[in-house]
Design a protein around this nucleic acid. Structure first.
Lengths: 267, 267
DNA sequence: CAGCACTATTGATCCATATCAACGTAACTC
DNA sequence: GAGTTACGTTGATATGGATCAATAGTGCTG
């Protein structure tokens, strides 16, 4: 969620809308580089603990490093993959944020998720060999590409790696099911409170403020994700503001009463 | 979906509500038995092509046979696993049908899926080591248990097996996302048409009639799954009946205009 | 097979959110 | 920095499905 505080977000150098992202392997960071490819090692990436929650052996991480394509810096609104693109890789968000969405048969968009640094996207493509969703950056973002065929063979070598991917996919299933429940049972206020709480928790996991952040997605995207119209989203934000639960100024948001929001979200 | 036509469904021998299922390894079937354990081999199971869509080598199937616990015949409303039970296995539905459901924090049920013969349940437990859902039979059912630790080690031996499980999980993700879209964007009529079409397609896959079947779940379960009240479900069925799209008599249903239903479901 | 409990249907009313509309505000373009 | 376009807010009204209520089936139990 939110603008990565270390990177300016307003910067949007490419004509980006509806185009695939321009990539570059150069990173501005000064972190230690992996000897074999002069890139930041997964070992040194400060997101490692989110992206790779497993205790992995040093030499297993080196093997992983060998297959990860790092640091594609993408402009805002750049596609990482599109629906029906052949499935070749899963992707880790390194900085910035991403939305995934499905297209309905009549061409409407359904946002299926928002993804922040350390989170993995693209696993929906494994089943059919083609991505079922599209993924698009919500702001300037850097993405690590993990080619799936090599990941698969690595998984047979390193049982921990296989287990880790089973876990990631299973987490995706349970988070989708949480959204199903939210859409099926909860009011507009409950849905929005739940989204705010979820984003807040993910900020905390990244050692950022859980109460002050920038929402990288538009009201339209929020409404779309939560099955609400943009007007309803706007009204709920206004109501929360009036009740002193939050402070909203455009995309900047401050959660002023986390407990009350958790109460509303029923979490 | 529906009563498996080869098995009487009305039979409900156990006091079953809210209890774990009584199991037995005896099967009434006369199919060929696997030499090592006197059970029907996965190879001979007529559901094989659904449950195991991969071309597997003969000896790989034998390895799989060795770990699968077959044929637990369960009474109606028996739990296969409950939310928070330690995750030990995934399960294949062999006959009958199953619903999975989550419990919301305030104790309400949210049905997350209906499962028919050849379909796999329980994969949501991998991530945390505990099932995130509960699974309960909708009618008398037989279930194959596949212990996950042994499946995992088998997957490192047999790359096809690993891939197959990645695929199964990814299919679960995309079907959950389809439900998200349905709940977020579609009207009551569209949701119900979509469910009927989905069940119909799964009947056809099992070489049964796609237009005449028995809905094994209650109206309450349908409504819960689709985010609707039981009254709305009932009214939509009545409307469809009046428009001659379906014939409904309790749980028996006949789809009289599949094309029109597909049109409504937008599929 | 009578009785009871659960499940489904149908009708009347209500309400949360969609829809329609107008206006305000931010941000990108030249 | 004026003009344009997209994005966001707020108000008025409409509506699909929820809720409340009454009745009718269906099937398990003794």
């Amino acid at each position: 969620m939110t603008a990565n505080p270390t990177t300016p977000v307003r910067f949007s150098p490419f004509s980006d809308e509806d185009s695939y992202a321009i990539m570059s392997n150069k990173l501005a960071s000064s972190a230690k580089l992996c000897p074999h490819n002069n890139q930041i090692s997964c070992n040194d990436c400060r997101l490692g603990s989110i992206c790779l929650p497993l205790a992995m052996h040093e030499d297993d991480i080196i093997k992983l490093d060998e297959i990860v394509q790092r640091g594609r810096p993408l402009a805002k609104n750049a596609h990482i993959y599109r629906k029906n693109d052949p499935f070749t890789a899963v992707y880790a968000v390194r900085s910035g944020s991403v939305k995934t969405y499905r297209l309905t048969n009549d061409g409407q968009e359904q946002v299926t998720g928002f993804y922040f640094p350390g989170e993995i996207i693209g696993m929906d493509g494994i089943g059919t060999g083609h991505y079922a969703n599209a993924a698009k950056t919500l702001e300037t973002a850097a993405i690590c590409e993990i080619p799936f065929d090599r990941l698969e063979s690595l998984s047979t070598e390193i049982p921990n790696m296989q287990r880790h991917f089973f876990q990631l996919m299973s987490q995706e299933i349970t988070s989708d099911q949480q959204l199903i429940t939210l859409l099926s049972k909860n009011s507009a206020e409950e849905r929005i409170a739940a989204l705010l709480i979820s984003i807040s928790a993910r900020m905390v996991r990244r050692k950022l403020s859980g109460t002050q952040f920038r929402l990288p997605m538009s009201r339209t995207d929020i409404g779309n994700y939560l099955g609400l119209t943009i007007e309803t989203v706007s009204r709920v934000f206004s109501r929360f503001k009036k009740q002193n639960l939050v402070d909203v100024d455009g995309k900047e948001i401050s959660l002023k009463d986390l407990e009350a929001l958790k109460e509303i979200a029923d979490m």
